[in-house]
């Protein structure tokens, strides 16, 4: 299994600040299963660029407000 990229996300926090949007509702909005949203939130899955943009659009924020690259050497 490939090493996980140092990507973190704020999907859970953004859901909570958007009227406590459920994982199922977000999953429906971006066209994935609820299990995939859970995997994204837990950092077990990095979504495709398309899904990443869809998530950002659902919350009305930019991509870098949702996802961030945490490796200080590459910043």
């Amino acid at each position: 299994m490939a090493k996980r990229p140092p990507i973190s996300n704020r999907v859970k926090q953004l859901r909570e600040t958007h009227d406590g949007m459920s994982q199922a509702a977000l999953a429906k909005e971006i066209g994935v299963t609820r299990q995939t949203v859970i995997a994204i939130e837990q950092g077990r899955y990095s979504p495709s660029l398309e899904s990443a943009f869809r998530i950002a659009r659902v919350f009305g924020v930019g991509l870098e407000d949702v996802f961030s690259w945490d490796d200080p050497q590459d910043s």
Binding site: G31, V32, T33, Q35, T36, A39, Y45, P47, S48, S51
Partner: peptide
């Protein structure tokens, strides 16, 4: 509902 759902990108 879950059984009828199509495979998503992670699947």
């Amino acid at each position: 509902e879950e059984a009828e759902a199509e495979e998503d990108e992670r699947d």
